[in-house]
Design a protein around this nucleic acid. Structure first.
Lengths: 338, 338
DNA sequence: CCTGGCACTCAGCGGCGCAGAGTGCCAACA
DNA sequence: TGTTGGCACTCTGCGCCGCTGAGTGCCAGG
């Protein structure tokens, strides 16, 4: 029973509610949007929408408020993605262009996203598993102590200390370094195990153990460090919603501090398309009154990580989605340029 | 006019207020602390304390609340540092011992401190300027493109890309690497400029420019990257104080996100002794109703960075100070062990 | 199917009054 | 001079009351 006008009514309700933060009534609706029908008609439509679970009233004799289901419908069928204004675009580009290294790019992105959306911004560091190797370096800090440095195409650097079972000569180390680099530079992390499997055989037996140790440490780095870091900013924006405050904000802050939770949240939507997770759709119970808008970003055509924002379910979806998408694109560009 | 008993009254007021979060009256005081005098006497003392600005009443006919000045006196003369219980100590040690690298140590420290004090924890990464060089590595990524990797005694790694004005041969690079390391390993950063000043002279004139570029890049890293990172945790603890909520919490969250502000806050107290900055003593105006307890920590006898907590002025100073000090000590130990 | 009319519901708000905690002051006492 | 009990006074916090107004559901007529 969702005819065209009822959808229009739902859209109007969402828009008004997002703007005013107050339940919206039939009369106000007809006045603010030119629906061409009387309040009584709108009331009937509202009753139908409520019947179907798209809207609800906080109490009898109050206006209507969209439910999670209502927001869902709004996002899926009624709302577009609002493109940013061109001054905004220029500002983004200018702001991000000033970054000097990866850390700086990420830090700026978080700030930018938080400011643009006036919500909590979450940015994941480019994930190792999806990036490629730019360089591997091995440094002998002591006869049997080697430092492994791994540089990725996104500019990320990981280092690790290795204690070898036997000393590894300077020339052998240089040899290993050269062989390693010639094989795996430019390769996906997922390819590396296959590519280095036979390397120890090229070395004399006394050193083979040490070489294996180094290699397995490299593989460990690739796997373990897939544990992904993320940066969060704009938490002060949580205070913009004074309603039943500590109750609402506390679990959100707690969830934000749990990297695992946030990573799962971002990770849920595979692929790089924009994803909106509304209210109870979020697995974590501290976030049942928030929505998460996330999208993949990357230096090439494929996403290497995600970024997004966390805000109240009552958020400006078109605007937020526009900002998130735009920022993701520019970050991708910046990363590609390096 | 601060005789012994009046100090005792002030101490009692602070303790009660911290416990109950409510203004404390004369009668309650005499009952909960055995002051051996009547409420009337206490009232006289309170009037005197108020006269001197150590306490205040929110409104007539309400109990008294300590002022910043009152807390100051309490911290300076009345409160000791409460040592942790030995189970607590064991828990700290055990928790920190599980860390695998510097990032992990810092991350765990933040969590620990936040949990222990139930407040917002702030931990500064070991500062480069006060640490020593463990190793410098130079990698030729391309003929005229060198990557500089700097490893500090605290396990921190900084890397930087350098575009040289002229190509630098493989052997020259190895030579430079060897000379650099033999000169500056184990040295303070502040010593480095002096120690490397004459290095370019050892090279043939065509390469001297490239060598200088590398060196100045190294020095830049040392100076610039003194820009210090910090990690913050436990922000959810801010919600434990429901009083006039958004007004109080917002500026605090904003301040916490401004690394500059926090760094200045931690940096204010030079040296490694524990410092308590109360209410309006904090320069930043968003933090005028909070106190900051901070202390230096380090791998040796000298502090390489600071850590601390931010909480309401109405905090348990002895307990907080005890926890902060203990954590700083253990972190220092952990760092020293590596 | 839309519309105007009508009776009903209920959150929010201001006013009122009470109870209780806490104070300041004073006079008496050691 | 310092301590104490007594007393009158001042407020905040809380619950109660009743009003107002926005908003609803339903119904009968177009």
């Amino acid at each position: 029973m969702l005819n065209e006008r009822r959808l229009e009514v739902l859209r109007a309700i969402v828009q008004d509610y997002v703007g005013t933060e107050e339940p919206v009534g039939s009369k106000a609706l007809t006045e603010r949007h030119n629906l061409q029908v009387s309040p009584a008609t709108v009331r009937n439509d509202m009753a139908a929408l409520e019947e179907d679970g798209y809207i609800a009233q906080p109490h009898t004799s109050a206006g209507r408020v969209p439910t999670d289901k209502g927001y869902r419908l709004f996002v899926d069928r009624l709302a577009g993605v609002k493109p940013l204004s061109s001054p905004e675009r220029r500002a983004i580009q200018h702001f991000l262009d000033g970054a000097v290294d990866l850390d700086d790019v990420i830090a700026r992105t978080v700030r930018l996203l938080a400011q643009l959306t006036r919500q909590v911004a979450v940015v994941q560091y480019p994930s190792l598993s999806r990036s490629t190797v730019r360089h591997v370096e091995l440094l002998a800090l002591a006869p049997a102590r080697v430092m492994l440095v791994l540089i990725t195409d996104t500019g990320r650097v990981e280092q690790r200390m290795i204690d070898c079972p036997a000393p590894l000569g300077e020339t052998s180390l240089a040899d290993l370094r050269a062989r390693l680099n010639s094989r795996i530079v430019g390769q996906r992390f997922s390819e590396v195990p296959r590519l280095v499997a036979e390397l120890p055989e090229a070395f004399v037996s006394e050193e083979r153990g040490a070489v294996s140790t180094v290699l397995s440490s490299l593989l460990e780095t690739l796997v373990e460090e897939t544990e992904e870091r993320l940066v969060i900013g704009g938490t002060a924006n949580l205070t913009r919603f004074p309603t039943d405050f500590p109750l609402t904000i506390r679990p959100v802050l707690e969830a934000l501090e749990e990297q695992v939770v946030m990573l799962r949240l971002l990770g849920e939507a595979r692929g790089s398309e924009m994803t909106v997770s509304i209210g109870h759709e979020n697995a974590h119970e501290g976030l049942t009154s928030t929505s998460v808008v996330s999208v993949g970003y990357g230096s090439g055509d494929e996403a290497v990580a995600k970024l997004g924002v966390v805000g109240p379910t009552r958020m400006d979806y078109p605007g937020t989605m526009g900002a998130v998408r735009a920022v993701a694109r520019y970050v991708g560009q910046i990363l590609a340029e390096n």
